[in-house]
Simulated scan of single mutants.
Amino acid sequence: MFELRRLRLLHELALRGTLAAVAEALAYSPSTISQQLAQLEKDAGVPLLVADGRRVRLTEHGAALAEHAARALELEEGIRGELESLQPGIAPVRIAAMQTAVHAILPAALSALDPAVRIEVAERPPEEGLFELSARRFDLVIAEQYPGRTRAHEAGLERVLLGSDAIRLAVPASDPADGLAAVSGRAWVMEPKGTAAREWAVQQCRAAGFEPDVRFELADLTAHIGLIRSGVAVGVLPDLVWAGSRPPVRLVELPGEPARDVFAALRASSATRPGIRAVLGALQAAFPARRSDGTTVE
């Protein structure tokens, strides 16, 4: 008989690649992970892991059992969903949300929920949040997709569109720039390399005929606003960053009036959970309508 807890460790190893990464994610020691996987190997009666330098990798048997482990975890989650329908609030809803969603969507959404539903929120960039959703660290992830840059659809995950969020060039309030070409020689602030936001912004600059001089690489969009307002840099920002306040910078429309899709992602196996359905509904209702200047419609 396989113990579900050990199967989860094997599933995590298949996703994360190293024992150290599994240990860090689950707050276990690497030695504990190794001991539990060694016991799982005894239960299976076949080798599941093989040394590969200073690391380990899954054998053919290990990879096959990891796939079965994923299905077992989905079944367990479905059972928990049925139990929760009999007793709402039995399990917390763990949410990973990008920064703009934390400021502009979550406060209104959470205030509309039944207090009996326990909500746990962590701010995470979309790339990390979506990975951890597959790994079952979170139940819902609020992420974004930039125009022309689709995210991979992972097996077992579903998406629910929350709304469309306009993206505009942001310059100091007194700056007369009327488009990207007018700021080609300026210093830029952008999100870190590897993020969808950074890749999209760079592509817009290249389409306008220049390579942006990115002197400030910051994940915190409030820091972007401070640099732009002070005249140190220019950048492109989504409307949700203003969270209902009037922008202290000047916003300029970009070609084609682009907008990113903001969506919630969840595991299909958890879609029947009443708490998750309630949170999804609240998120959709809380997504703000916007005026052309980026402020919220009251």
Results as ranks from 00 to 15, higher is better:
287 F>T: 06
27 A>L: 12
147 P>L: 05
14 A>E: 14
67 E>P: 02
94 R>F: 02
272 T>G: 03
270 S>G: 15
249 V>L: 07
254 L>Q: 07
126 P>M: 01
203 Q>N: 10
36 Q>F: 02
296 T>L: 14
164 S>Y: 10
229 R>D: 13
178 D>R: 14
53 G>N: 03
65 L>N: 11
56 V>W: 09
52 D>C: 09
59 T>S: 03
116 A>E: 09
111 S>W: 00
107 P>R: 10
278 A>W: 04
220 D>E: 11
140 L>K: 01
246 R>S: 13
14 A>S: 15
214 V>I: 15
234 V>N: 08
222 T>E: 12
14 A>W: 06
105 I>Y: 02
139 D>N: 06
286 A>G: 00
34 S>I: 09
192 P>V: 02
109 A>C: 04
16 R>T: 00
5 R>E: 15
195 T>W: 04
259 A>D: 01
288 P>L: 05
113 L>E: 07
33 I>C: 15
139 D>I: 01
8 R>K: 13
219 A>T: 12
265 A>H: 06
124 R>G: 06
33 I>Q: 03
15 L>R: 14
160 V>C: 11
109 A>M: 04
256 G>T: 07
42 K>T: 12
7 L>C: 01
168 R>V: 10
291 R>G: 11
278 A>Q: 08
1 M>S: 14
164 S>D: 12
47 P>A: 05
82 E>Q: 11
285 A>P: 05
62 G>H: 04
228 I>P: 05
151 R>E: 13
212 P>Q: 01
42 K>H: 08
261 D>V: 12
47 P>T: 07
38 A>C: 03
11 H>I: 02
232 V>L: 13
74 E>P: 06
229 R>C: 06
142 I>A: 01
114 D>H: 03
90 I>Q: 14
37 L>K: 01
98 M>Y: 12
159 R>W: 02
259 A>C: 06
18 T>P: 09
152 A>K: 11
71 R>M: 12
262 V>D: 08
78 G>I: 10
246 R>G: 10
49 L>C: 00
52 D>S: 14
270 S>R: 15
25 A>M: 04
84 E>G: 06
85 S>I: 01
105 I>M: 00
133 L>D: 06
70 A>L: 01
72 A>Y: 05
73 L>Y: 04
284 Q>K: 14
45 G>T: 05
137 R>W: 07
132 E>T: 14
109 A>G: 00
260 R>P: 07
162 L>N: 09
145 Q>T: 15
293 D>W: 03
211 E>P: 02
16 R>Q: 10
271 A>E: 11
19 L>C: 03
280 L>M: 08
5 R>N: 12
245 S>W: 07
115 P>D: 00
269 S>W: 07
182 A>V: 04
277 R>G: 04
284 Q>I: 13
168 R>E: 08
241 V>Q: 03
52 D>P: 03
47 P>H: 05
125 P>W: 04
77 E>D: 15
86 L>W: 05
170 A>S: 09
159 R>Y: 03
277 R>A: 15
30 P>R: 11
257 E>Y: 07
210 F>Q: 13
1 M>R: 13
127 E>C: 01
297 V>S: 10
140 L>Q: 08
134 S>M: 13
271 A>T: 06
